[in-house]
Simulated assay, not measured.
Amino acid sequence: MRNGITKMKSLDIYLNSLSKSKYEEIKPLLVDKNKARINMLSFDLHIQNYHSLLKSSSLQKDIFSLKNIASSFSWESNIESILTKNSFEALILTDIDRNILWVNDGFSKMTGYPKNYAVRKTPSFLQGRSTSAEVRERIRQKLQLGNPFKEVIINHKKDKTEYKCELHIFPLKDKNEVTHFLALEKQIA
Results as ranks from 00 to 15, higher is better:
P28I: 08
L29P: 00
E185T: 04
K20G: 09
A183K: 03
Y50P: 00
I169M: 00
A70Y: 00
L41R: 04
R98C: 15
I69W: 01
H168I: 11
I188C: 01
I47A: 02
I5E: 13
S132Y: 06
E80Q: 15
N99D: 12
E80T: 14
P28T: 03
G106S: 07
L126F: 07
Q141S: 13
P171I: 10
I139N: 02
S87P: 00
F43Y: 02
L11S: 06
M1C: 06
I26P: 01
F149C: 09
E185P: 06
D159A: 03
L83P: 05
D32L: 10
E162C: 08
R129L: 12
E24V: 07
S124P: 02
L91S: 07
S10V: 08
N78C: 09
M40W: 01
I47F: 09
L83C: 09
K142N: 12
E151R: 01
G128M: 10
H168M: 12
E134Q: 11
H156N: 07
K121S: 08
H46T: 11
M1K: 03
L143C: 11
N86V: 09
N104R: 02
F64G: 08
S19Y: 01
G106D: 10
E89Q: 14
L172V: 01
E89L: 01
I69G: 02
N104K: 04
S132G: 07
N155I: 06
P123D: 06
T84W: 00
Q144V: 09
S42P: 04
T111F: 05
P114F: 09
E24A: 10
L93V: 05
P148I: 04
S87H: 06
D105E: 13
I5C: 05
Y50T: 08
T6W: 03
Y50M: 11
N155D: 07
L66C: 06
K55L: 10
K85N: 15
P171V: 11
L91W: 02
L83T: 04
I92V: 15
N147V: 08
K186Y: 11
K175H: 14
E76P: 05
K85M: 13
G128F: 08
K67V: 09
I47E: 07
S130T: 05
D105A: 11
R136W: 00
A36G: 00
N86Y: 02
R129I: 12
P114H: 11
E76R: 04
T6S: 10
E137A: 14
N3Q: 11
L30Y: 02
K164R: 12
